[in-house]
Design a protein around this nucleic acid. Structure first.
Length: 328
DNA sequence: CGGCTTTGACCTGCGC
DNA sequence: GCGCAGGTCAAAGCCG
């Protein structure tokens, strides 16, 4: 298996997100991201998921972190989430599909089934302690309902399961997913005190689609980007702290990719990719409606080039919510 | 040696 | 209450 690392590093680390329009409608409408709305983020409050139309959105890097900002900053009715982004935030679960929504049906499926897992990072801290004991015998009982961290799921057509987003993740689990030949991997942000988690799995419908679900908000800048330019600015939740209006899928830290991908490819012996290319360029359909959506991203920019790339976020984010990237 | 992955076991919530 | 499925833990092992 060739390492994709090569290409990623030598070519422009380009990531083409797959948007709903690039996803077979059958898929998009299959409810693959849908989950029943529960009440106000209560249990199962993951809420409805769906494809959000992203008409007019282009020129974005894709930084999943931004999804958090989207969802925390914009009224549900104007949450401009790339169509592959799937809201899971309880804050918006009950929001009916916006006029632009492609699909908000309500069947259940992968990527949306996790109704029970989220905990606040705070809780998690405590639970961590308890967990230590729990293993032995003591099932800690939390009578209180868990609160959900904001979650975002988005799909990416990629050969790589674990798309790097600039943050460092540590895998802490992997589970077989029902009705899917592909396992789901669980990652946790390696930064101490940052309880952000993410799940990565492949769509059982379309094996080329990677479903990444983020849970929680980073409390620190992107470790790979000194400026934290693409991460959530800890000091200002929501858009206030946006370092850039770009979405970014970072090229992975080389060591990570090297190691990770090799192993991963080994494990996923079933080659759902006939020709595992070595590029992180995800397929796009011809005549994509978002011609410029695909964009190069300088590897974890230390320059300000990235920051200047506002793409159309400017169009969808109220100006007062935008803020020029700030220096770290 | 530190950081990370792997993996089986355990825990939890939910539906029946 | 039971079984299932998802989520998490943590020991063991791997790798640079």
């Amino acid at each position: 298996m060739e390492k994709k690392e090569e290409v990623i590093k030598t070519e422009s680390p380009m990531v083409n997100l797959t948007f709903a329009d690039q996803i077979p409608m059958s898929f998009a409408s299959s409810g693959i991201f849908d989950m029943p709305c529960d009440q106000e983020g209560e249990k199962g409050g993951g809420g409805s998921l769906g494809f959000v139309d992203m008409l007019g959105i282009q020129d974005y890097y894709c930084n999943p972190s931004l999804f958090d900002m989207f969802q925390t900053s914009l009224p549900p009715t104007q949450q401009p989430v790339p169509s592959t982004a799937v809201q899971e935030s309880s804050e918006v679960v009950n929001t009916p599909a916006t006029p632009n929504s492609l699909s908000m049906s309500s069947s259940s499926a992968e990527a949306g089934h996790d109704e029970k897992e989220s905990k606040t990072t705070v809780e998690e801290g405590e639970e961590q302690d308890q967990a230590k004991t729990k293993k032995q015998l003591k099932p800690k009982k939390k009578s209180t309902k868990r609160e959900r961290e904001p979650r975002f799921a988005f799909m990416t057509r990629s050969e790589v399961d674990h798309l790097d987003d600039g943050y460092r993740w540590r895998k802490y689990g992997q589970k077989a997913v029902k009705n899917s030949p592909f396992p789901r991997s669980y990652y946790r942000c390696t930064t101490a005190a940052c309880g952000v988690k993410k799940r990565v799995e492949r769509s059982s419908d379309d094996h080329t689609i990677v479903v990444t679900t983020y849970e929680g908000t980073h409390t620190h800048p992107c470790p790979v980007t000194p400026r934290g330019s693409i991460g959530i600015m800890p000091e200002s939740p929501g858009f206030g702290g946006i370092g850039t209006s770009s979405f970014v899928l970072n090229p992975p830290p080389h060591h990570y990719y090297h190691h990770h991908q090799q192993q991963q490819q080994q494990q996923q012996q079933q080659s759902y990719f006939h020709n595992p290319t070595t590029s992180l360029s995800f397929s796009t359909t011809t005549n994509p409606p978002f011609p410029n959506f695909v964009q190069e991203r300088p590897s974890c920019p230390s320059s300000s080039s990235l920051l200047r790339d506002h793409g159309l976020l400017q169009d969808i984010v109220p100006s007062q919510m935008r803020k020029e990237p700030k220096e770290e």
